[in-house]
Design a protein around this nucleic acid. Structure first.
Length: 423
RNA sequence: GGAGAGAUGGCAGAGCGGUCGAUUGCGGCGGUCUUGAAAACCGUUGACCUGCAAGGGUCCGGGGGUUCGAAUCCCUCUCUCUCCGCCA
């Protein structure tokens, strides 16, 4: 969430920048400032009352100890009155605070000043492209047919066991998954990331801290009996490692990498976008997370972007990088790059990674801070990105590398798969 | 799942109704000494809200209650530990 102080001091700027995300903030920001003023006023009064009753309580204590009971009892009467009015005021205070908190968490992050305006994915900016988006050969087969042909991913059986969007990977399909996960983890280690294995379920406080709640409630699987959420991405548990934490400046940047399964309800998705591996309810992903000094977070964002494109290059996949427009960005992000690979048989780009800088938006909720060089407390910046999500990488590999002899595995993966071709 | 014990500052650990945001030790920071370091000694050392400041307020796992006054008493939730049961 945005910090109250920042909103108070930059009302017009906040409204203007929210407009780039197509968020009409005029009314809501006004309400926030108004509520915050009420909050301060009420707290001041409350503090004064509290101060008075603290003084009285101390006096009463002294009187009792020196045996002046009757004088003490007179003072007691006074505190009773104070207590009554404090109680009323306290209720008001709680109400104000609750409304303020509720509104505040529904305001999205401000976009970085370089974010292009726009409403739909068509307005995203293509910042680079490598490799050619070749049209499909007449004989090209989409991956959902290849997976059946080579018997490596079984959607039908997954359907029986669980439901749509929960495929079963078999034989070389399963081994390819494992190879990709290991390849991505090993590459991240080489780049200086520390590997972590997080829980796959999180409590509401964690989901709230990274911004999945209350905004994306319906996208997560919820285990009602224990009130836990299945993680939609390792970002949630990994970032929450640092909830309620004060780091030292020499700890920064924190670089973590985690493999996890990811679970998404994908409510509202339909059509050919969800065919085959394009959109699953359970999928595998290796996620990189960094916590940085505010001064360097945008350099780090570029570093992460270059890291991810490096992976795609090694996998020999044609890809492009998009800078997302205001309308296509997530609630929590200040700047996001999407990486897309070309899927030849579907003749479309598939998003395989999203790298974002959240600035202090998550940190404010996480209460993630660090002591800077001078010993002053500062709010850290958080960043994360997929490196990479598996299903669409697999889809692209299958479609782009299909030959009459089978699917050719990229050279860099062979040490991990133990085979060179799926046939 | 059953029985018991506990949750206090970065860590360890006192306090069990009044002057306690909290004794003490360790750790951290600053200093003296030293060529430097160690040791020793001295000093210092939490977060948050509010205020220009002085100051005021809140926080002893979370929430509620009793009381003029609660870290201390009561209720409740969560978590941790020990024992038993079950189990990868």
């Amino acid at each position: 969430m945005l910090s109250l102080n920042f909103i108070r001091e930059n009302v017009q700027e906040v409204i203007d920048r929210l407009a780039i995300k197509n968020f009409n903030g005029g009314e809501i920001i006004g309400r926030i400032v108004d509520l915050d003023n009420q909050r301060r006023e009420t707290q001041k009064k409350l503090d004064d009352m509290q101060s008075q009753s603290n003084i009285l309580a101390r006096e009463i204590g002294v009187l009792f100890q020196s045996g002046k009971a009757s004088e003490a009892n007179t003072l007691k009467q006074k505190t009773a009155e104070l207590k009554d009015s404090a109680k009323t005021l306290d209720l008001q205070f709680e109400e104000i605070k609750k409304e303020l908190d509720d509104i505040l968490v529904r305001v999205p992050n401000l976009p970085h000043h370089t974010v292009p305006p726009g409403k739909t994915p068509e307005d995203n900016l293509v910042v680079m492209q490598e490799g050619e988006a070749l049209p499909a050969a007449a004989t090209a087969v989409p991956h959902w047919d290849l997976t059946t042909q080579y018997d490596i991913i079984d959607f039908i059986t997954g359907n029986k066991i669980t439901g749509a969007g929960f495929p079963v990977y078999k034989g070389k399909g399963a081994r390819l998954q494992r190879a990709l996960i290991n390849f991505f983890l090993e590459e991240a280690l080489k780049a200086g990331y520390t590997e972590v294995q997080p829980p796959y379920m999180v409590n509401a406080a964690s989901a709230y801290a990274t911004g999945q709640l209350p905004d994306k409630d319906a996208q997560m699987y919820h285990v009602g009996l224990d009130d836990l959420y299945l993680i939609p991405t390792a970002e949630v548990p990994v970032t929450n490692i640092y909830r309620d934490t004060i780091l030292k400046s020499q700890d920064l940047p924190v670089k973590n990498v985690a493999y996890s399964a990811c679970f998404r309800r994908e409510a509202g998705s339909y059509g050919k976008d969800v065919r085959g591996l394009n959109r699953l309810h359970q999928f595998d992903k290796v996620e990189i997370v960094q916590i940085s000094h505010p001064d360097t977070s945008y350099e780090i964002l570029e570093e992460m972007r270059n890291y991810v494109t490096g992976l795609l290059r090694k996998l020999e996949l044609p890809f492009r990088v998009l800078k997302l427009c205001g309308g296509d960005m997530s609630f929590t992000s200040a700047l996001t790059y999407d990486m897309e690979v070309w899927s030849s048989a579907q003749a479309r780009w598939l998003e395989v990674s999203s790298v974002s800088n959240f600035e202090t938006f998550q940190s404010n909720r996480l209460k993630l801070r660090f002591k800077d060089e001078t010993g002053k407390m500062q709010t850290a910046h958080t960043l994360n990105g997929s490196a990479l999500a598996l299903p669409r990488i697999v889809a692209a590999l299958l479609e782009n590398n299909q030959t009459p002899e089978g699917i050719i595995i990229p050279k860099v993966l062979v040490p991990y798969t133990g085979f060179e071709v799926i046939n």
